Amino acid sequence: MSGNPSGGRAGAAPETILGEAADAAEAASNSKPLDVAARWGFAVMALLHVVIGAIVVALVLGAPGKAEPTGAIEQLAANPWGPAVMWSGCIGCAGLALWQLSEATLRARHLPRSEGLGKLVSSGFLAVAYGGVGYTFGSFAVGVSSDSSDSTAAFSRSLMDRPLGAPLLTALGLTVAGIGVYFVVKGLGKKFKEELRHFEGTHRGHLVSALGVTGHVAKGLALVLTGLLFVVAAATNDPGSSTGLDGSLKALLHHPFGPYLLLPIGAGFIAYGVFALIRARFGRM
Rank of each mutant, 00 (worst) to 15 (best):
residue 217 V to W: 08
residue 54 A to Q: 09
residue 134 G to R: 03
residue 61 L to K: 15
residue 60 V to Q: 07
residue 57 V to F: 04
residue 131 G to S: 04
residue 187 G to K: 08
residue 198 H to W: 08
residue 113 R to V: 08
residue 72 A to M: 08
residue 77 A to F: 02
residue 207 L to I: 12
residue 30 N to E: 10
residue 8 G to C: 02
residue 230 F to L: 02
residue 80 P to Y: 06
residue 273 G to Q: 10
residue 67 A to C: 05
residue 72 A to L: 03
residue 2 S to G: 05
residue 109 R to E: 03
residue 85 V to F: 15
residue 131 G to E: 03
residue 135 Y to F: 13
residue 251 A to T: 07
residue 161 D to C: 01
residue 192 F to P: 06
residue 84 A to W: 08
residue 255 H to F: 13
residue 194 E to T: 11
residue 71 G to R: 09
residue 100 Q to A: 14
residue 72 A to D: 05
residue 272 Y to I: 06
residue 49 H to S: 11
residue 222 A to S: 12
residue 259 P to W: 06
residue 280 A to N: 07
residue 258 G to Y: 04
residue 176 V to Q: 12
residue 2 S to C: 01
residue 223 L to G: 00
residue 216 H to M: 11
residue 278 I to M: 13
residue 97 A to P: 10
residue 176 V to T: 11
residue 276 A to M: 14
residue 162 R to Q: 15
residue 153 A to I: 02
residue 1 M to V: 11
residue 218 A to V: 02
residue 243 T to M: 12
residue 159 L to K: 11
residue 112 P to H: 11
residue 155 F to L: 12
residue 16 T to D: 15
residue 254 H to N: 15
residue 268 G to A: 02
residue 230 F to S: 07
residue 210 A to S: 04
residue 267 A to F: 07
residue 256 P to G: 10
residue 91 I to R: 06
residue 49 H to E: 05
residue 64 P to Q: 14
residue 240 G to N: 05
residue 144 V to P: 01
residue 75 Q to A: 08
residue 115 E to Y: 00
residue 121 V to N: 10
residue 7 G to R: 04
residue 254 H to K: 14
residue 123 S to N: 09
residue 257 F to C: 06
